[in-house]
Design a binder for these strands. Structure first.
Lengths: 228, 228
DNA sequence: AGGATTTAGATTATCAGACAATCAGATCTT
DNA sequence: AAGATCTGATTGTCTGATAATCTAAATCCT
């Protein structure tokens, strides 16, 4: 029997159909959707079932609903998703090695793009250097961590490959588990490491920048092993 | 006045309280939660409002509900979240070039991992070679396209970096639009290209495999430009 | 007694119908 | 014309009910 598939709930089906409707119609954030009763009829379900689907989607920011106005396509942002997810205990159970390696692949992979754009746009170097400078005046661990996140995000962003930026934001959530393991003693080496990455990029020395970044992110691996 | 904050919906408040309940009680995935009626009373709202909150959380995988059993803390996974990521505006942008470049970054980035694992596990090479062989007997365009997708997915999968596999699956959706532009004349060169990638990997020649793959995916770029 | 089957209770899934709250635009007033 | 008001549309929330599903206890057969 192949019928043992977990029976899909109505709302999941509806949510799926609503999503593909948005995609297939090429709707963009802000575009209006039909009202609840209309959609319910269209999908052949009760208004309540449709509501459960839209409310779930709204929770993610995929749709927006305003009282007295109606439904519209929402402006999804990863912050919203990550803030909902960040706390979840299951995230602390994910196998960390593939996560680390995935991050290495993405971040080192964008460096050639970054170097290229940096050569054309001086403000990119300024931004990165500015973050590194602020590292030096960080007094608390939390500050350091926040700056670290900002540095890597800025780096990704400088590549112009926004799909990877979005994915990296997501990955960052799963990295929360490592943040706490950063030792105060690692600050100094971390700052120097960031500085070297920026310098290499500025010189167009992609190869060394990659090596440095690989080692920088890979340091999480070593810390993991020690813990175990 | 601080009261100008957008009025929070009941379900959002409830969702928040439910989350903090999970945290404060230190619950882990699989742990049972009180039933809907009980929770509704506890929070002082109707069962329906509570339901909208739990359904939204369930959509994210934060809680699970099974008919006849009840609610429990959910097992969240990367794939689930990634599938929602599909709605991120970054992926919907009109410009396809960042999409192509993102794919190049990911697929070339995993090749070292693939080569490494291939040296230890002969079945990986067999799988890839098997797909390439099937390419040769493909008669219809659709067959060719399906095999192409399967080839790249198998390649990613062989890296063992499941987060990237999930993300690549997502990107694949947005690549559908290019697939139709594949010309029949390109079959032959495509097959040869795939074969070279497999051969290089088998020889441990990662460098050439990367170059080949970069060119392979990059061919979409050229096709795009011609169209414009 | 022991194992298989049935039944009962609990729980979620879905529905229908109603009323309140809110908002955008039309209408009325000055 | 400008502002205040009204109105219809739409979502927000509630109550109550029925169906579907699962767990576990009760029952039955051997």
């Amino acid at each position: 029997m192949l019928e043992t598939l977990p029976k899909r709930k109505i709302r999941d089906v509806i949510a799926e159909r609503l999503k593909s409707h948005i995609v297939s119609e090429g709707l963009v954030p802000g575009d209006r959707l039909p009202n609840e009763t209309e959609l319910a009829e269209q999908f052949g379900v009760s208004r309540l079932s449709l509501r459960e689907a839209t409310k779930a989607l709204e929770f993610l920011g995929i749709v927006e609903s305003r009282t007295g106005v109606g439904l519209s396509v929402g402006h999804i942002d990863m912050d919203r998703v990550t803030s909902h997810l960040g706390f979840h205990p299951a995230l602390h159970q994910a196998d960390p090695l593939p996560l680390i390696d995935s991050r290495i692949v993405i971040e080192t992979g964008v460096l050639p793009h970054v170097a290229k754009r940096m050569a054309e746009d001086p403000s990119i170097h300024e931004n990165l250097q500015g973050i590194v400078d602020r590292f030096r005046s960080a007094r608390k661990l939390q500050q350091w961590i926040d700056l670290d996140i900002e540095f890597h995000r800025t780096l990704l962003d400088a590549s112009g490959l926004s799909p990877l930026v979005a994915f990296s934001d997501l990955l960052q959530v799963f990295f929360r588990q490592f943040r706490d393991s950063v030792k105060t003693a690692e600050w100094k080496s971390g700052i120097a490491s960031h500085q070297r990455i920026v310098d290499c990029l500025q010189d167009g020395d992609v190869e060394n920048a990659v090596a440095e970044l690989r080692d920088h992110i890979g340091s999480h691996k070593r810390r993991m092993k020690v813990q175990k």
